[in-house]
């Protein structure tokens, strides 16, 4: 009996503490400014990386937070919070709970379009407020240096004849980025995409499998291929960028477009806010991200990671995302993978 009392007491004290404080919390929220006018953050800003520490989202978030803070662009503290799970779905559902709160941002990239279409998240990009896009990265398709194919057309000719003779490897599961970027370009080249064999391998095994000959084509990001190309281990048949890029080695990668395949795939990365943000706060962040994108400090970081500058403001970003989604939808319908 005494023990039960103790548990009850523990519960009671905590509930008491909770009640005692709820008033303050309400008071804080009403301080937000209304429509129009200018807006400034009133408390520390939280940037959610919907993945674990160390990944692409996490790195982008931490680097952006660092530059925004150190260059004095935003006075308030900026903290990066990791919400891991479901390829982003856990983080998105977390943000969706903070409707209209301009102090919660998150970093996003194509998975926010792909994952909902795969039926793995109830929230998609329409459910949030896209603020600004910052960078772009592109996909690359690589084969072993001694492979019989010298350009994308060679490869796709073989695949048109016998699609099952070629195995493609990527890090992520079917229906996600590495798979979709390959399917998108292959379809434009006229390959029967329902016959493409795709294997997913994590933890660096995908490159391993390409190098040891288990698979034929590696669908990945451009940066991942550079060192292997330099060492003459692999060759890049094509990249998904609209035009050739600058930079050592990268400048030699032919685009799909110049090989007569009129298709691109952008691995964009930018920042979103919760649903229902007001115009003043959207304008504030657009402004700050523009300043960040133009800053030298961020340019240095972009160079280091091999990211391309690709600033888009709120409206442009939104239109871009809708267009991206339509494109992917068509592909997934063709593959019979659309689970939305």
């Amino acid at each position: 009996m005494k023990k039960l009392l103790l548990i009850a007491l523990f519960f009671f004290i905590i509930v008491l503490a909770a009640c005692g404080n709820s008033d303050d919390a309400d008071a804080g929220e009403s301080g937000d400014s209304g429509e129009g006018g200018s807006w400034e953050p009133e408390e520390s800003i939280e940037i959610v990386a919907p993945a674990g520490a160390g990944g692409g989202w996490d790195t982008t978030a931490r680097m952006v937070a660092k530059v925004l803070g150190e260059e004095g662009m935003i006075e308030e503290n900026i903290g990066v919070v990791n919400k891991t799970g479901g390829g982003g779905a856990v983080g998105w559902s977390y943000i969706a709970n903070y409707e209209g709160d301009p102090h919660k941002l998150f970093v996003a990239s194509p998975p926010i379009i792909l994952i909902p279409l795969n039926g793995q998240s109830e929230y998609g990009h329409e459910d949030f407020t896209p603020l600004s896009n910052l960078i772009a990265d592109y996909g690359a398709f690589a084969v072993r240096e001694d492979a019989e194919w010298d350009d994308l057309n060679d490869l796709f000719e073989d695949m048109k004849e016998d699609p099952e003779s070629v195995t493609v490897v990527g890090e992520s599961a079917p229906g996600s980025m590495d798979h979709i970027q390959f399917v998108q370009i292959a379809k434009a080249a006229g390959v029967d995409i329902t016959k493409i064999r795709y294997v997913s391998a994590q933890d660096g095994e995908s490159l391993t499998q390409l190098l040891n000959g288990s698979v034929d084509v590696y669908s990945t990001g451009m940066a991942e291929t550079v060192e292997q190309v330099k060492a003459d281990n692999i060759k890049v048949l094509g990249i998904t960028a609209p035009e050739r890029l600058e930079g050592e080695v990268i400048e030699d990668f032919p685009t799909a477009i110049e090989q007569g395949i009129d298709e691109t795939f952008v691995n964009w990365r930018g920042f979103f806010g919760p649903p229902g943000m007001d115009e003043a706060s959207i304008a504030y962040y657009e402004d700050k991200f523009k300043e960040l994108s133009d800053s030298e400090a961020f340019a240095e970081i972009r160079d280091q990671f091999g990211w391309d500058e690709e600033y888009m403001g709120h409206e442009e970003y939104k239109a871009f995302l809708d267009e991206q989604k339509e494109q992917v939808q068509v592909l997934l319908d063709d593959l019979g993978l659309n689970n939305e």
Binding site: I7, F10, F11, I13, I14, A17, A18
Partner: peptide, 22 residues
């Protein structure tokens, strides 16, 4: 169970301290 339930509501320090104590 109570700890987990209240962790994100009341905050880490408060709930943890109460948990260890009780």
């Amino acid at each position: 169970f109570i700890y987990i339930f209240l962790l994100e509501i009341l905050g880490f320090i408060l709930v943890s301290a109460l948990f260890i104590f009780f």
